[in-house]
């Protein structure tokens, strides 16, 4: 399989995942230099097309592209022609006619990227989050952070706590866990769990305290209050924090070297207590840092149409005549 687009973690095999993570790892150093610029994507054009609000993901893609010398253009829904009545496909085809190499798309509807890829043949498409479907660059980021924090994830136990039903990151982890061999426990009140979530092969808990022992990774999700208020599926913020918030007392029952992650933005005092978010177990800011590096790797792979992990030479010396 050739990686022409990146829709989700589910389309990748183990080798391709490791390839992208390792390339991202090599890019971390670039962001620590005094001059944060390499010529890797010189002459490439990347358009960030965001139909949903996003600060960190859009900024992360923008910085990743710019540090690799690509020309990056940001378009958000409020300024795009869709607000004047243009269809999604027309907007995308109009932009594609300007010959960008990569379109990075976030949309509230699952499957947006696959739909557009059927119509845009020349442009690589990267999913920056589509509905509750997938968020591949976030999970690749998490996997790079985990590589640094605990090494190989195979056999480890990740406990994901919170609004599983609205979380594309949770879904991406459920899919990646099967490919990479880690165990996932999901913890949420019944109203925040998708039906038949156990079919993903995860353990399902409604009681956080019962799930926490033996966890190597505690993955806290933001309570997406903007999506919840209209439904009656949510107790008060205070009640939620009591039952599903991560605090010192709970963290003490996880494995001693347990790492705490959060895809952001976080609500301090709701899903995570402030002292934990800033504490020694927290890898939340590492995730942000690694996000830029992983997106550099994804953009590089997208601009390299030869990228194909199956074809990668086994002999490291088999490079060009350089």
């Amino acid at each position: 399989m050739k990686l022409q687009h990146l829709f989700g973690i589910a389309q990748l095999n183990k080798e391709q995942i490791h390839y992208l993570i390792n390339m991202g790892d090599a890019f971390i150093e670039l962001s620590k230099r005094p001059i944060k610029k390499a010529p890797t994507l010189r002459g490439k054009t990347i358009i960030n097309l965001f139909f949903e609000n996003s600060t960190r993901t859009r900024t992360s893609f923008e910085i990743a592209g710019k540090r690799l010398s690509a020309d990056v253009i940001n378009i958000s829904a409020s300024t795009s022609a869709t607000s004047k009545g243009e269809t999604l496909l027309d907007t995308a085809q109009t932009l594609a006619a300007m010959q960008p190499h990569v379109l990075v798309i976030r949309h509230s509807l699952a499957g947006t990227c696959e739909f557009l890829a059927e119509h845009l043949r020349e442009t690589a498409i990267v999913n920056a989050g589509d509905g509750a479907h997938e968020h591949p660059t976030q999970i690749l980021t998490d996997l790079l952070t985990l590589k640094h924090s605990i090494g190989d994830v195979a056999g480890k136990t990740m406990t994901i706590v919170g609004d599983i039903s609205h979380s594309r990151v949770a879904r991406s982890h459920l899919l990646a866990a099967k490919i990479l061999g880690y165990h996932v426990r999901v913890v949420a009140p019944k109203t925040l769990l998708p039906s038949k979530v156990e079919n993903y092969g995860c353990e399902v808990f409604h009681d956080f305290d019962a799930a926490i022992a033996g966890s190597d990774i505690l993955y806290m999700l933001r309570v997406q209050t903007e999506r919840l208020t209209s439904n009656c599926c949510f107790p008060s913020i205070r009640e939620y924090h009591e039952a599903y918030g991560l605090n010192k007392k709970r963290l003490a029952r996880a494995n001693a070297d347990c790492v705490v992650m959060h895809p952001g933005p976080m609500n301090r005092g709701v899903e995570i207590a402030s002292d934990i978010a800033d504490g020694a177990h927290s890898r939340i800011l590492n995730q942000v840092e690694h996000g830029v590096a992983v997106r550099m790797a994804v953009l590089t792979a997208m601009c390299d149409l030869r990228f194909n992990a199956h074809d990668l030479p086994s002999n490291p010396d088999k490079r060009g005549t350089l």
Binding site: Y19, N22, M23, A26, F27, L30, A38, P39, T40, L68, T300, A301, C303, D304, R306, F307, L312, P313, P316, R319, G320, L322
Partner: peptide
């Protein structure tokens, strides 16, 4: 790896 002038032709090296 990321400064090569043949990145388009050969892609990044698998062991970077």
């Amino acid at each position: 790896s990321f400064y090569r002038d043949d990145l388009d032709l050969n892609g990044p090296h698998p062991q970077i």
